[in-house]
Design a protein around this nucleic acid. Structure first.
Lengths: 253, 253
DNA sequence: GAGTGGTCTAGACCACGCG
DNA sequence: GCGTGGTCTAGACCACTCG
């Protein structure tokens, strides 16, 4: 006998748990249902609460669960598709744009943004804050950096800041002819203020979408948008995208 | 005296630690440098190792650090931009495609893929595995699902499976006229096999890119690509994208 | 106030890479 | 074999929500 050594590499407990829970979610729970609390679940599976939590974190990352302090853990609905890039490019704030202007101020852009805008690193630019809400749920927060040179006729316009100002800046922007845009997506963690706006805790995983807007042969505006990674699927192209991931019917019958 | 209660809401230790470490990375470390080990760092900051690890996890999620078991924690280089969608659409495997075919088999597609392909849920399709390596580093793994109807002339071709077969299937695909494509990006966690291929642990955060390819008025192929979220920034559009995030020079001088 | 998830601790052992 | 990060435990307390 001895050690037959045929035992496969031991799978971590939390990973195995994740799988077991995932299957249970498919077969025994429906969307919105509340799971037993963490202490009970941990006891039921015979693991420490921290281990159980590691498994839940995975499932939350995958958009399968939603946890809220003081409330409980619920089964999340499938991720919602959010259209990010359509084939026909338009300025932010154009008709049909679902984003809501929140306010506007002038500030010095972060160095990397200033570089993209080719403004001096001391130069103040317009910063329009917008937010995207779908089905009553906050989905994304955006900061739009617009140098004065892109909105030259913004002079004696009424409000110095606030929502009205934001609308004015966006309106002025439409006067430029948009020549193209350029986009990047990466993983990030929510800063404290974004987290609050998105109704998440600081450090929550988010998808950062950075867009450069080109006009008059230069970068006329830069947008940095923060999407909730747990609830969103970003779609590109006109047709809306397929919902492929996590499919309970995976196993062939 | 009593509790003046003016103390702000206590920031979690791990979050504060993340900030402190982040600033230290900017000012005192350079790319590739090895940090002190976790036990030492925890002691230095007077926290438990688990707390310190929570802060490191955040920084790894943000692409600032790279941790490898048995080796240590190093300062990560800036994320590399990976072009995902170019304006001129082409089939996978077209000239200039950086993906490497790995092998090919026939299998029953996951239910959601089968639905997109409009094949029967029992029908076997070609599954081409490909991988993307940049600068000697594995970056992404892909599964390409191609129904037989999309590659009708794939008959007496030599190899029944393996890399040669994969190439044959891709070559056949070029004969169709590509009418458009459709893409979605979401956060996921690496399955065991993907994790291995990407040189990560199971559950590592990844960006899932799902693409539908249209030809002859239907979905002719579906690609599911898994990108390392820690090292990649996905770029869309022709110009390559800006590197905006994490910029040490954030503070204006 | 009771119950939830979120944070934190102090310790143990394991899997891996490397010399 | 040694040092690294990865997993796991058993417990404590905190912050939040809701009845």
């Amino acid at each position: 006998m001895g050690t037959t050594q045929l035992d496969t590499v031991p799978e971590p407990k939390y990973w195995h748990l994740r799988t077991v829970l995932s299957e249970a979610l498919d077969s025994e729970f429906s969307v919105g249902e509340i799971l037993p609390n963490e202490r009970d679940l941990a006891a039921r599976f015979g693991v420490a609460r921290a281990t159980l939590r590691q498994a839940l974190e995975q499932l939350e990352l995958e958009g399968r669960l939603q946890r809220r302090r003081g409330v409980g853990t619920t089964v999340a609905p499938p991720r919602m598709g959010v259209a990010v890039g359509t084939e026909q490019h338009t300025w932010p704030g154009a008709v049909g744009d679902a984003w809501q202007p929140v306010d506007c101020a002038t500030a010095v852009a972060p160095a990397a943004v200033a570089r993209a805008l080719e403004t001096g690193s001391e130069e103040r630019v317009h910063v329009v804050r917008r937010s995207l809400v779908t089905h009553g749920q906050p989905v994304a927060a955006e900061l739009l950096y617009i140098p004065s040179s892109s909105v030259p006729d913004l002079s004696g316009i009424d409000a110095p800041s606030g929502t009205a100002r934001a609308r004015s800046v966006l309106r002025e922007l439409q006067h430029l002819e948009l020549e193209g845009e350029d986009r990047a997506v990466e993983l990030g963690s929510a800063r404290a203020d974004d987290a609050k706006e998105l109704d998440r805790l600081p450090g929550a995983p988010v998808l950062l979408v950075t867009t450069r807007f080109f006009a008059e042969g230069r970068t006329a505006a830069v947008s940095v948008a923060t999407y909730r990674a747990d609830t969103c699927r970003l779609t590109f192209g006109d047709t809306g995208g397929v919902e492929i991931h996590h499919d309970p019917e995976r196993r062939a019958s």
